[in-house]
Design a protein around this nucleic acid. Structure first.
Length: 826
RNA sequence: GCCCCCAUAUCCCAAUGGCAGAGGAAGACGACUUAAAAUCGUUUCAGUGUCGGUUCGAGUCCGACUGGGGGCACCA
């Protein structure tokens, strides 16, 4: 193209990008803290990124979709807070630093700068005055403050227990970070190690975390709700006490099936529990030796082996006996690894006739099996184990009862005798938060020989991370901070004697559990977050992020919010009112990730198609929660459409001052039909449908210009303006340039949509359809206010309809005036 | 093993229980062009995974099945 006229009329992606970025930097359309802003407030939040490199296709999708929502509400007249930050502590920075011999800090902040610059180019509608970086002392100081708030409430505590240990990362892991027995980060087989570690008492909030999910029904994806429910895993049953021969204290077991108590023929305790060791210690030397040997074998196995479903049951008898409280029967006690030490009481009553695992165990070791339920629907002998609903047998006065009746009765009896009570248990465990690594928030506790655990006084916060210089960061099972002797050795805040800092750092999920509150006042040195700002803005109205965080992050953030509520810091109990989970971006069916290689590079896509086309493609590909296979979509097609839309603005031949209400009615109707539907499409996350509606309107306007009312008709200007505004959600550069071509000053992102003129949408006639037995037989135009009788008469007069009815007798006529008549025949 | 979600044209996807097609991609044809690209226009393409049920009427609701995806899983 060498003709200057043609150049002026060409849609030039990179020129448009270069033109508008600096203008926006000046205009700052997304500042949310302007003095005197009276617009209603809305808080839209995208999950903040981990700065592991430049932005990738996954970020591009997430931020494109978050932007659609944030920009939409701005153009609906809201003051939208849409902040961004970086979740910048964590192992990848540390591992990269070790590999390259760099400070994790340098690597992290370089990546942040890179991502920030890419976000600017990507035209994210972030409020750049509200940035936070979790590895800044300004931020993590408040992690420490929160830790101490939790500590003072008894919600942060240290205990020695068997914990998940990743031998490769050389650190402990939370339960949530162990996936199928593997480390979620490096896929190493996780082992168990007895260590003294810090925990947050999530279990104290288990009931509320579960019950309050009901309040999110309809506002969060049902998938996330069910994943959280599964994870918390509440079950109801009973605690039952068994007297142990030769032991003063009885042993309590938890069961969900107290109705089967008469069928308990042995007891099993977790081999790695303190109870098992204690019981074995009083047994014969042979038993002790056998037990010790078995415990050794179990300790050497890992979860992968332990969880293998087809594995044969193992265990050893402890030579001890328990007394069944309902029938006085003497039953043997075994130790086995299929019973978990940290669930319930680490001991079970085994009912082999009605539990698959107990049945397997009894079969393996030839233990007695007693049936106490029979299948009421089968006259034949019940196949054991029978776990369905049945009728009680062999159970004394319970005989003949149904399950629920028997459960109620036995709990009453046990309670009366003081040998049991109803109980519930959770799958959820307390959250292990200490990590033996460098790049994280130091735990603000000092250990003193005399005073024990001493919290760092509030006025001494933050406990700053010492410089990585001179520290050996390589994983060795204890925190690298232990090597910073100047840092570790302090005097006790209580007694002044020599004491040591806690050298562990916090799980980075602590950082992300409350960051949405920090955005309210990200620079405050006075508060973690400004309480007044929390009243004004929080909770988050719309949260956007990947389903990968369905359990971990979202559960922890909910927990934090509830604790903060109970501590009086916030007046709400759920952090995220609405949640949108976007899918993943795939290439030919494969996930793109750092470990598997980024099959498609975002920067290449942006260079090739432009920012707008990539963003539009993300929104148009399909429902946001579905995965996008990049091989199935067409960013080139998006670019083509954007050029087509842009040319409309270029073609409009009327003035900004023109009275659009004088425009062509049919074109105006198309525009206002669009306006009516577009908003609800966006609000219900049907972005793909919203884009299709824009395309439809563009097609109408194209036709109007080329072969219809012409480029000068005011209705064409009106339509083109609304196209520019709507396109601003998806393709901000193109939209801004269109807005400029249409004669407006910069800032289409702040231009509110026109109000729908309902009078344009009123139809005078409509196409009525006539079905015979549900099949379409005729259609004709009728007045919208036609009566049912008239419409039926018209339908019955139709030759096509009469032919379809033929000789049959009409049984029923359904009339839904003015749209439909259905004639049912016999 | 238990629980949840999904299945529409060659592909990606639309369709308050009421005409299966909004939109896009790919394909074909035409206009413009010396030609191509770009652009504009026209156009082809399925009865909705299978079986059964509810209904005047089912892609949509219910049940079973098949296929795909996801969650939980030795949690007593």
């Amino acid at each position: 193209m060498n003709n200057s006229q043609a150049e002026e009329n060409a849609y030039d992606v990179s020129a448009i990008q270069d033109k508008w970025l600096p203008v926006w930097d000046e205009l700052r359309p997304f500042d949310s803290a302007k003095a005197g802003d009276t617009r209603p407030k809305k808080y839209v939040l995208d999950m903040f990124p981990y700065p592991s490199g430049d932005l990738h296709m996954g970020h591009a999708e997430a931020y494109a979709l978050g932007d659609v929502i944030a920009r939409y509400w701005v153009q609906r007249g809201f003051n939208v807070m849409h902040p961004i930050g970086w979740d910048s502590f964590g192992l990848p920075a540390e591992n990269a630093a070790i590999k390259r011999g760099l400070d994790p800090k340098g690597w992290t902040y370089d990546n942040i700068a890179q991502q920030k610059s890419s976000m600017r180019r990507y035209a994210c509608s972030f409020d750049w005055d509200r940035v936070l970086i979790t590895s800044d002392p300004l931020y993590y100081r408040w992690n420490q403050w929160l830790f101490l708030e939790f500590y003072n409430k008894g919600l942060a505590y240290r205990k020695n227990s068997l914990v998940n240990w990743c031998p490769s990362c050389q650190t402990v892991l939370a339960n949530e970070q162990v996936v199928q027995g593997l480390c979620e980060r490096c896929d190493s087989v996780v082992t168990k190690k007895a260590l003294t570690q810090w925990f947050f008492k999530v279990t104290e909030y288990a009931d509320r975390l579960l019950d309050d999910l009901d309040t999110l029904e309809g506002s969060w994806p049902s998938k996330v709700l069910s994943m959280q429910r599964n994870w918390i895993g509440r079950s109801y049953g009973a605690d039952v006490q068994f007297v142990i021969e030769g032991r003063d204290e009885p042993v309590t077991v938890y069961t969900t099936r107290p109705d089967t108590l008469h069928g308990a023929t042995f007891m099993v305790v977790a081999v790695d529990s303190a109870l098992a060791s204690e019981l074995a210690a009083e047994a014969s030397p042979e038993v002790q030796a056998e037990f010790a040997n078995y415990l050794d074998i179990v300790k050497q196995s890992n979860d992968i082996e332990r969880l293998a479903t087809d594995r044969e049951k193992t265990g050893v008898p402890l030579g001890r006996f328990a007394i069944n409280p309902v029938n006085g029967e003497r039953i043997p006690i075994w130790a086995a690894d299929y019973v978990l030490a940290d669930y319930g009481h680490g001991a079970i009553m085994a009912v082999p006739a009605h539990d698959q695992r107990d049945h397997d165990f009894a079969t393996t070791f030839d233990l007695p099996i007693r049936q106490v339920l029979k299948d009421p629907n089968s006259s034949e002998e019940t196949v054991l184990p029978f776990v369905g609903e049945g009728v009680m047998i062999n159970s004394g006065e319970l005989d003949g009862m149904a399950k629920s009746e028997a459960i109620a009765k036995i709990i009453d009896d046990l309670t009366a005798k003081g040998t049991g009570k109803s109980a519930k248990n959770f799958r959820l465990r307390d959250w292990l938060i200490s990590r033996q690594r460098y790049w994280g928030t130091p735990i603000p506790i000092i250990h003193c020989d005399d005073c024990g655990e001493v919290p760092v006084p509030a006025d001494q916060l933050p406990v700053q991370l010492p410089s990585a210089e001179g520290l050996d960061l390589s994983p060795k099972g204890t925190s690298p901070l232990g090597g910073a002797s100047d840092w570790v050795n302090v005097s006790c805040p209580k007694c002044g004697k020599a004491a040591l800092r806690d050298t562990d750092t916090m799980d980075t999920f602590v950082d992300s559990s409350w960051y949405f509150l920090r955005f309210l006042s990200p620079k405050s040195t006075e508060f973690a977050f400004d309480p007044q700002a929390a009243k004004d803005w929080a909770p988050v109205d719309q949260y956007v992020g990947g389903v990968t965080h369905a359990i971990l992050h979202l559960l922890y953030a909910r927990f934090f919010t509830k604790v903060l509520h109970d501590l009086g810091h916030v007046d709400f109990e759920e952090p995220f009112t609405r949640l949108l989970n976007q899918g993943m971006v795939l290439m030919n069916g494969s996930a793109m990730s750092k470990s598997r290689g980024n099959l498609v590079r975002l920067s290449d896509q942006l260079d090739e198609h432009g920012v707008d086309a990539v963003r539009l493609t993300m929104a148009f590909a399909g429902p946001p929660e579905d995965d996008i296979d990049w091989a199935d979509v067409s960013p080139a097609g998006s670019a083509k459409f954007l050029a087509r839309a842009w040319r409309l603005a270029n073609d409009v031949a009327s003035d900004t001052a023109v009275d659009v209400t004088k425009g062509d009615k049919a074109v105006r109707k198309a525009t206002h039909t669009f306006l009516k539907e577009f908003g609800s499409n966006i609000e219900s996350f049907k972005f793909n449908v919203g884009v299709a509606k824009i395309m439809e309107l563009v097609n109408v306007l194209r036709k109007a210009i080329d072969t219809g009312v012409g480029a000068a008709d005011p209705a064409v200007r009106e339509g083109a303006q609304e196209v520019a505004k709507a396109l601003s959600l998806f393709a901000p550069y193109t939209a801004e340039d269109m807005w400029s071509l249409l004669g407006h000053s910069a800032g289409v992102a702040l231009a509110e949509f026109a109000a729908v003129d309902e009078s344009l949408l009123v139809e005078s006639s409509i196409t009525a359809i006539v079905q015979v037995d549900g099949k379409l037989r005729d259609k004709f135009d009728v007045a919208v206010d036609i009566s049912a009788e008239e419409l039926q008469a018209l339908a019955m007069a139709s030759a096509a309809v009469l032919k379809a009815i033929g000789e049959r007798e009409v049984a029923n006529v359904i009339v839904r005036a003015p749209k439909l008549v259905n004639i049912a025949t016999k």
